[in-house]
Design a protein around this nucleic acid. Structure first.
Ligand code: SF4
Ligand code: SF4
Lengths: 162, 162
DNA sequence: ATATCTCGGATAATAAATATCCGGACTTAC
DNA sequence: GTAAGTCCGGATATTTATTATCCGAGATAT
């Protein structure tokens, strides 16, 4: 069980874009450069974020990606689900219906006890991620990132916007 | 993000073994037959459960696997971690230390905000799984499995034990 | 109008994780 | 003592995830 690398990238990208001036955008190549990750694969995840209405893309010269809505209305869960998908980590294979004790499907209560436990764990996991917004992250970054890093980041963004 | 199939199998196996008479054991082949899953692969997961001290193996004729401790002292989390491993689904790649804003490692607080969110979600997930024991599952099964299935299961076990 | 820049999607190659199989070591019952 | 039966660990195959490359459609600044 492992989350895709894209999840980390996605959260970072969205957080960075929260610092972007309104009405500007950053190109996928720049975003990849900033984070030091493979551009092609990041682009794929950016498309997913775009489809999920978390980012919006603007084409042509001076185009790129920017946030589609205010950081306070986007949760970490939104980003995770856009990239990783929404189906639960545990998928029942109905193995109880294969063995010697098998019965017709309608005799089984759904969902079974095991599935209930797994689902409930999945639910609290998602709830926990859903309780934090991107706005929360940016304020945390402002609080505990190294100051010099913030300055360098701001400088880089000025440069990237020409 | 997807849990290994072995997790479902493992939970089922441990639950079934809770019904096994003291001082007997079920062979991995029988367990695979009962659940209708590939024997060789199930065997691998059983080894993991054995290493985790959840099952204990007895070799030679009349050997096989049985529970290593009472069902009430084994949580679903124990089984999941034995099979799936204990490391969190989100592993930080330290991408913030690759970009233009990069600083020497000691300037960064650990863990960062994003990692904290992910860790905390992982923690509640595990806590949720850790709150349910195998004993809880067996009583749930007794409560809502189809009666005919229980009878057939008991019959099968009698036969399997010769 | 047009030349240029960007995303969007499809395709292919590579790497990694997962699922499967097999032969050897060990234990037990007789 | 011995032979049958079982687990154990490593080798193999299959699937999935990641990375890289390409071209077309649409948008925009000039
Ligand atoms: S008992 Fe539950 S977890 Fe197991 S196969 Fe049936 S529905 Fe799935
Ligand atoms: S900011 Fe946090 S999640 Fe991102 S790379 Fe650094 S430690 Fe990992």
């Amino acid at each position: 069980m492992k989350l895709s690398d894209g999840v980390e990238w996605g959260v970072h990208v969205v957080t960075l874009l929260a610092y972007l001036p309104e009405d500007r955008a950053l190109t996928s190549a720049r975003l990849a450069e900033y984070h030091g990750v493979p551009a092609a694969y990041l682009a794929k995840h950016l498309q997913a974020l775009s489809r999920a209405e978390i980012l919006e893309s603007v084409q042509g010269p001076r185009g790129g990606y920017r946030l589609a809505r205010p950081p306070a209305t986007v949760t970490v869960l939104d980003v995770v689900e856009a990239i990783e998908g929404t189906e639960p980590a545990f998928r029942c294979t109905e193995i109880r219906r294969r063995g010697p004790g098998a019965r017709p499907a309608r005799e089984y209560p759904l969902p079974c006890a095991i599935d209930r436990v797994m689902r409930s764990a999945d639910t609290v996991w998602r709830a926990s991620l859903g309780a934090v917004t991107i706005a929360d992250l940016t304020s945390a970054v402002g609080r505990d990132a190294p100051p010099k890093s913030l300055v360098a980041g701001a400088e880089w963004m000025r440069e990237a916007l020409r």
